[in-house]
Design a protein around this nucleic acid. Structure first.
Lengths: 173, 173, 173, 173
DNA sequence: TCGTAAGCGAGACGGTACGTCTGGTCTTTAC
DNA sequence: GTAAAGACCAGACGTACCGTCTCGCTTACGA
């Protein structure tokens, strides 16, 4: 009966990351993202409940499924870490990730969204792939993602490959 | 000749962390902090150029000098990590730290302040205490602080002692 | 298509004059006016570029069209002068007028607004009604309005009827 | 043996009018006037109770005694009006006068100062010189000063000579 | 084919915080 | 004792952003 939603999501995600990349997270206002996507702000708020939720959705879309392949736990972890490090280095993604994450620190609602939509799927997949308990996987995620985000936050640049390898060594050792 | 600055800094820092602890970072407005400290907002802005700079100064004051003592590198690192983890767990400090870090991600000026006033002193001290090059120390800081903040951000709670010990093992191993 | 502006203007004007009347021009802050009108401060700034512009608009609204009727120039002028004198005596209007005028003295932008929106319409109407050149009408306005405002400013009270009649005699003689 | 007050007053008055002339009344803050005079702001507030009082004193000093000479009432008035019009046209004086006057509208205390120190001396002198009752002289002052200030306020420029002569004709007729 | 429910664009609106500015007071040091 | 220097208080200003709301238009789907 009703008009179905048009397939705008992909364009909005692209506009979101592009805007964050060009202007930074703080200057990437919802108005500007809407303008960049060529849609109305109301359309964004009809689909996502908050700016943080939009960013989270854009990140989920951008990350896609994690490559959890390899002959051993070490190989699987190394591949996954290189993948997440590379993703965070892509234009806009790192800044968006760091921005959402830091917003979530002070926004319990956003924390729930971020945890459920971005972290949990990967956590569960990693648990299955590695056969490790939740607590250990959460710790690994804290170390890997925390380290990458801290580097991103303090320098404004993604972590260099050498340091990513050091991180892999640290975690898989 | 002129009226010297009164010793307000300590009270402002206390009011800052107390307000962040009670209201959270987002609700800790400069007006409220000033009210809590019993001073005028203009006095704050005369001393610190922005809210982020105030928070950074409050954190620098709250952390104080790092305990870099021990018989070996491993001991020194373990002590330091337990210390920073405990500090981040203190009321207000963790939330303030995460908040400032968040803001810094999108505010280059604040990033400079945060880097120069909070990170660099400890980085230099650690370099001397451990006899390690800057790059390695920066990596260790990314891992330790990043992990602790990521846990704080995703759960809202500081890291439990067990996991702190795991982090120490990871880094010193 | 967009949400139409609600008919708030009249309420804001009323709130403006009421606030000026009760608190005086200096204490009539934009926040208080907004609160009195039951709207947000941002709504005021979206519609009027400054506090002075709001006051000007409120005055334009309060004055309304000038009564320029009468059998002769003398009659027309006398009617108009009694009208403007009575208006300036109304609660809030005199203080608001004097306040805006004050601000305009030092604010070229406001002077343009005040001149174009408040003075010019009446000047033009008077020119037509009396068949006098612009320069003479401007002089008459200076004398009439200047005298009334000066009395208001020096005494805090509007000019008494006797003196208004003397002013009429002076100008029409 | 108190340190005698140096001849600072004259320098402050000069700095006041100069600052008002260069920056306009609104931008002529007390801080700037003090800086221009090369003295401390406290010194100003020790001598005059408010910014308005300072401006008033500067105006009293700048005006000096009124020339109330002439063979007839008409001549005396014409001379006085030309004098006050010329004074108001001097750089800084007109803007300062208009500024103080308009501030006084909303500041009863300033109104008392302005009335007692600036208006009353001239009013009394004119009463004696012309042999007119207070009420009539007050009316004449309202008309003359009000007209000149209104012109100054609406245009930012002092009244042209032609219009001053018209004002003289109006009042002496 | 036509009504209707929902999608959508445009933008007004409320709320809240920021950082700035100014008038006026207070305090310390120097002459 | 007076002045310089400037810290300090109080409070208004104007701006930016988020998320909500309202309207009118448009698009599909179902009767």
């Amino acid at each position: 009966m009703a008009r179905p939603r048009s397939g705008i999501d992909a364009e909005v995600f692209a506009a979101t990351l592009k805007t964050v990349h060009e202007l930074g997270y703080a200057r990437a206002t919802v108005d500007r993202i809407a303008a960049e996507a060529g849609i109305a702000k109301t359309t964004i708020y009809r689909r996502w409940p908050s700016k943080g939720a939009l960013l989270t959705a854009a990140l989920v879309d951008a990350f896609g499924p994690a490559p959890l392949t390899g002959a051993s736990r070490t190989e699987i972890l190394a591949t996954a870490i290189r993948w997440i490090a590379a993703k965070i280095g892509e234009p806009g993604i790192g800044a968006a990730f760091a921005g959402v994450f830091t917003d979530a620190v002070n926004d319990p609602e956003l924390r729930v969204i971020l945890s459920a939509q971005l972290q949990d799927p990967y956590r569960i997949a990693v648990e299955k792939a590695l056969g490790l308990p939740e607590r250990e996987v959460l710790f690994i995620i804290d170390v890997v993602v925390g380290t990458l985000l801290h580097r991103m936050g303090m320098t404004g640049e993604p972590m260099a490959d050498d340091d990513v390898e050091a991180l892999i060594t640290l975690v898989t050792k």
